Amino acid sequence: MGVEPALTGSDLILSKLQDFMQVGGPVVWILSAMSVVALAIILMKLWQFVLTRPETSAHLERVLGLWKQGEADQAMAILNTKRPVDELLGLSIQGLNKAQNNVAMLKEELDRVATLRLNQLRAYLRPLEVIATLSPLLGLLGTVLGMIVAFQQMEAAGNQVDPSVLSGGIWQALLTTAVGLAVAIPVVMMHNWMERKVERVAALMNDTVTRAFTSAPESVNTEEHTAIRHAA
């Protein structure tokens, strides 16, 4: 008779994980899949925020100062158009700096670009919200189904009910609720943080573009400047 090889650390963890998934049943499998999707979305959004750095605003004061002095070219040279706020500010400066600017067209273009960039920042936040909402509900559903099975077993046992069997069924049922909450809590936190970040970017867009209009140099037509200020 051969001797079974001892399990390594990774094999032991994998075995425990398989047992955990089997005890939890289909609900835990679904929650695990949802957690993987949520993690992928969170990492993707974090990478997007790192690349674009949409809230970076330390250089905007200098840009607006140059623009107010009539140095449009120097102001544009500082801007990084890969950032949404910089892009809108650049469009504002270019539009206001043109001798024959069209107020209505500039307003529409700023609205279009702002909406597009904010939608890009909000992309995939809705699936994250759905996962955060459904996870605890699925966990509760798994608990209810597990409790039904546990009480069915207790009814079948009649007068010879084994408390250990009943308690085992109950903790297995409660396991799905714990998993659902474990998935939902960090997802809710990350979703709210990202939503708030997008709101701050939108506010920064509005503030920066409005200041570009109100600090336009004297060379810009006064009547057009007053009218276009509402585009922000």
Score class of each variant (00 low, 15 high):
1 M>S: 12
1 M>L: 10
15 S>E: 10
17 L>D: 00
18 Q>I: 13
18 Q>W: 12
21 M>H: 06
21 M>N: 02
24 G>L: 06
29 W>E: 00
30 I>K: 00
30 I>Q: 01
32 S>A: 15
33 A>G: 15
33 A>P: 06
34 M>Y: 01
34 M>F: 14
34 M>E: 03
34 M>K: 03
35 S>P: 03
36 V>E: 03
36 V>C: 06
36 V>Y: 03
37 V>R: 02
37 V>Q: 04
38 A>W: 02
38 A>S: 11
39 L>I: 05
40 A>Q: 01
41 I>R: 00
44 M>Y: 10
45 K>T: 04
51 L>W: 14
54 P>Y: 02
55 E>D: 11
56 T>H: 15
59 H>Y: 11
60 L>C: 07
61 E>Y: 12
63 V>P: 06
63 V>L: 12
67 W>M: 10
67 W>E: 06
73 D>C: 01
73 D>Q: 14
74 Q>Y: 10
74 Q>I: 05
76 M>P: 01
80 N>L: 11
80 N>F: 04
82 K>C: 07
82 K>T: 11
83 R>V: 04
85 V>T: 14
86 D>N: 09
88 L>T: 05
92 S>R: 05
92 S>K: 03
93 I>M: 12
93 I>K: 05
95 G>H: 02
95 G>L: 04
98 K>P: 01
100 Q>Y: 09
100 Q>M: 11
101 N>Y: 12
101 N>Q: 08
101 N>L: 15
104 A>E: 13
105 M>A: 15
106 L>C: 00
107 K>W: 02
107 K>Q: 11
107 K>C: 11
114 A>Y: 01
115 T>I: 06
117 R>H: 09
117 R>F: 04
118 L>I: 12
120 Q>D: 12
120 Q>S: 04
121 L>M: 07
122 R>D: 14
122 R>S: 12
125 L>P: 05
132 A>V: 07
137 L>C: 01
138 L>F: 12
139 G>C: 03
139 G>T: 04
143 T>D: 04
144 V>G: 03
147 M>G: 05
149 V>N: 10
150 A>V: 06
151 F>E: 01
152 Q>H: 10
153 Q>S: 09
155 E>M: 10
160 Q>N: 14
161 V>K: 04
162 D>G: 03
162 D>H: 11
163 P>L: 09
165 V>P: 03
165 V>M: 14
170 I>S: 00
171 W>I: 09
173 A>G: 04
178 A>R: 08
178 A>F: 13
180 G>Y: 08
181 L>V: 15
181 L>G: 02
184 A>K: 02
184 A>Q: 03
185 I>C: 04
187 V>K: 00
187 V>T: 08
188 V>A: 11
192 N>C: 08
194 M>S: 07
197 K>I: 07
198 V>E: 08
200 R>H: 14
202 A>E: 13
206 N>F: 07
206 N>L: 09
207 D>L: 13
209 V>G: 02
214 T>N: 10
218 E>L: 08
222 T>I: 13
223 E>S: 10
228 I>N: 07
228 I>L: 10
228 I>D: 05
229 R>W: 02
231 A>E: 02
231 A>W: 01
232 A>P: 01
232 A>G: 13
